[in-house]
Nucleic acid binder design. Structure first.
Length: 281
DNA sequence: TGGAAGCCTGGTGT
DNA sequence: AACACCAGGCTTC
């Protein structure tokens, strides 16, 4: 099915910028699992072409656009965060990169897995978790739905550990229990304020300031969220903050949120992507 | 209250 | 080949 998109959209940058971990690229096609569907997307000149299984494309199309962050007016975001040369350069280079709007539970699990790890490994971890505790989709034996909090809580720490998650297995097991038992209502955090939602998230095992801000930005409608990881620390040190400045994580985050404003998270995503690319080339 | 060590594992460098 | 060292971080002391 063809979906025309009139606003700027960069499919590759959106799916390859470390926001989600279940997209595989084969040629010019991205395959992923969203809404319990195996989805394949290809960028075309004026939009995207996609297919999905097992649901009808007509039903999935609006959900997919929402997931891809296409319901946000990027032009006004750019206007808000274009406060200096560095950010303007990154915007120019990755124009159309979106912030995804993911399922909060899956996003949370992905970023708990991310601590002291790297994208290839996180992807493998998340895929292994899906295969072990999710359900095969349609007749495909290759891709599986993402397990529910109940699925993961029942699986238990031991079986998670055996997938090679290391010390993260404890975090995942505890957090899954908290969500499954209703001690943590992730969906309600979408309507909460940024501050309150952050406060709630960091009570979960394996969730500190960085992971919480990733979940807030990529799944809970909090565009002011600003995850400070080692790449962003480099950006801030090299381009923004004096070296003598105190470098505690929450202080750096607060500074950036004040500097970039209500859409600081978008600035974060562009600077992050730009800084990593620069290191690789 | 800040800062450093430890934690599982896999990849990378020596 | 075998062995350090470290990574997109959290927790604990």
């Amino acid at each position: 099915m063809l979906v025309t998109i009139d606003e700027p959209f960069n499919l590759a940058a959106t799916l390859e910028s470390g926001q989600a971990f279940r997209w595989h690229k084969a040629g010019d096609v991205y395959q992923g699992v969203v809404f319990g569907n195996v989805i394949e997307i290809r960028g075309v000149p004026r939009g995207i072409e996609f297919s999905c299984l097992p649901d009808a494309e007509n039903d999935i199309a609006p959900l997919l656009c929402d997931y891809l962050g296409l319901n946000i007016d990027l032009a006004s975001v750019y206007e808000a965060i274009s406060v200096d040369k560095h950010i303007e350069e990154a915007i120019t280079r990755y124009s159309g990169m979106r912030v995804l709007r993911q399922d909060p539970w899956e996003c949370l699990v992905g970023f708990i897995c991310s601590s002291a790890s790297n994208i290839p490994r996180i992807s493998r971890n998340v895929e292994d978790i899906s295969i072990a505790f999710g359900k095969p989709i349609g007749r495909s034996i290759k891709r599986h739905s993402f397990p529910t909090p109940e699925d993961l809580a029942e699986a238990g720490e031991k079986r998670i550990f055996r997938l090679g998650l290391g010390y993260r297995a404890t975090y995942l097991s505890k957090t899954a229990q908290a969500v499954a038992e209703g001690d943590m209502d992730l969906a309600s955090l979408r309507k909460d304020s940024y501050g309150h939602a952050l406060e709630a998230l960091v009570t979960l095992a394996g969730v500190g300031d960085k992971v919480a801000n990733c979940v807030l930005l990529f799944s809970l409608d909090k565009p002011e969220a600003f995850p400070v990881d080692t790449w962003i620390i480099r950006v801030l040190r090299e381009w923004y903050l004096d070296e003598a400045m105190p470098n505690s994580l929450p202080k750096m985050r607060a500074w950036a949120q004040g500097y970039f404003g209500p859409y600081a998270g978008y600035a974060n995503q562009y600077l992050f992507h730009e800084r990593r690319r620069r290191d690789r080339s």
